[in-house]
């Protein structure tokens, strides 16, 4: 497969995964506006801006224990994170970039995938925060469902060649980085306060489709430690770090080391180390924040290794 095409598909996977992650969080955040205390809403925004490493409009997030301020701020912040064209990580930009990559690589994906993403884009392209503010959670749920439908179309129709692997690989790398960043944000918030707030972890579990599993396993009361364990290690939970790195490892094994063989081998070794870390070191570790930081750094390194192994490798390689 042409390296540039593979790279385009990889990025399509990343952008659409990021769109979904953002939509899930924004859905929860805007649902919270209906009945949650101002403190919970403030934490939610802080988590979102923290994971995106973005400075909010106005420079800082102020905790105002007043409904009026909270709602007014939320409108501005939601607009910034959803439709702001100058914010590269806004929902709009992520989705538009995913769709743009799909348009460039349309000859490598199925017609069903293209139509899914294009139709959703056509509905989204002229919207603004005003258009969705009467029921914002419905908008985010709808867009997240569109990305799910895209995944479903890919699952059902995409030819299982290298393109398929790169699409998945992009999505998994994005998921690993986003989920790890989110957990780190929450741990930092917990440390600043008087211990953890149950509602924050409920939100995280919900955003990761893990609340029902948690409740089945641990009961209705949500505690930070078991929730963190579930989100990091559970091998059956689609969004857990353990499962995500297993899938990364499988896709890299399937692709082989690539023409940039040094980077390809390094990527294989690194995913092995990450799996070992999550399976063996994590359960006994008291330095969980440190381990998560390591995971985040190595997920970023993996991204660069993939780039050098398959897309941007040195040209002194054997020519067929």
């Amino acid at each position: 497969m042409l390296s540039r095409s593979a790279q385009g598909i990889y990025w399509m996977g990343r952008y659409l995964e990021r769109t979904e992650c953002l939509c899930r969080l924004m859905q929860l955040q805007t649902e919270a506006l209906v009945d949650r205390p101002a403190r919970d809403i403030y934490v939610g925004w802080r988590r979102l801006y923290g994971v995106l490493r973005r400075i909010p409009p106005g420079g800082v997030l102020d905790f105002a224990d007043s409904d009026d301020f909270t709602l007014a701020d939320s409108y501005t912040l939601a607009g910034d994170l959803t439709f702001e064209r100058s914010n590269p990580d806004s929902v709009w930009n992520c989705f538009a970039q995913g769709r743009e990559n799909a348009r460039h690589m349309r000859h490598c994906i199925s017609a069903e995938m293209w139509q899914r993403v294009n139709l959703a884009y056509l509905r989204l392209r002229d919207m603004d925060i005003e258009d969705i503010w009467s029921l914002p959670e419905g908008f985010y749920a709808g867009l997240a469902a569109e990305t799910d439908a895209f995944d479903g179309a890919a699952q059902a129709t995409m030819y299982r060649d290298e393109g398929w692997s790169f699409l998945r690989l992009g999505g998994f790398i994005e998921r690993a980085q986003f989920a790890t960043g989110l957990l780190l944000q929450q741990l930092a918030i917990d440390e600043e306060g008087d211990g953890y707030a149950e509602e924050d972890w409920v939100g995280l579990l919900e955003a990761s489709h893990a609340l029902e599993v948690y409740n089945r396993r641990y009961g209705a009361a949500v505690h930070a430690h078991p929730a963190l364990d579930l989100l990091v290690t559970d091998p059956l939970l689609p969004g857990s770090l353990g499962r995500t790195f297993t899938q990364i490892s499988q896709e890299i094994a399937r692709l082989g080391t690539g023409p940039g063989t040094d980077s390809g081998r390094a990527a294989q070794r690194l995913t092995g180390r990450m799996l070992s870390l999550l399976q063996n070191e994590w359960p006994d570790s008291r330095e969980r924040e440190g381990l998560l930081r390591r995971v985040l750094t190595e997920a970023t390194n993996l991204h660069f290794m993939i780039n050098e192994a398959y897309f941007d490798y040195p040209l002194n390689v054997y020519a067929e």
């Binding site: 390296s3 023409p259 040209l315 054997y318």
Partner: peptide
């Protein structure tokens, strides 16, 4: 066919190659 741009191709010893995920292909 692969849809290539100029930057995807190179010429070596009078032959044209494209950069693929499995190496250079004529």
């Amino acid at each position: 066919a692969e849809l290539v741009e100029g930057r995807d191709l190179l010429v070596r010893n009078g032959f044209v190659y494209m950069r693929t995920t499995s190496g250079l292909r004529r």
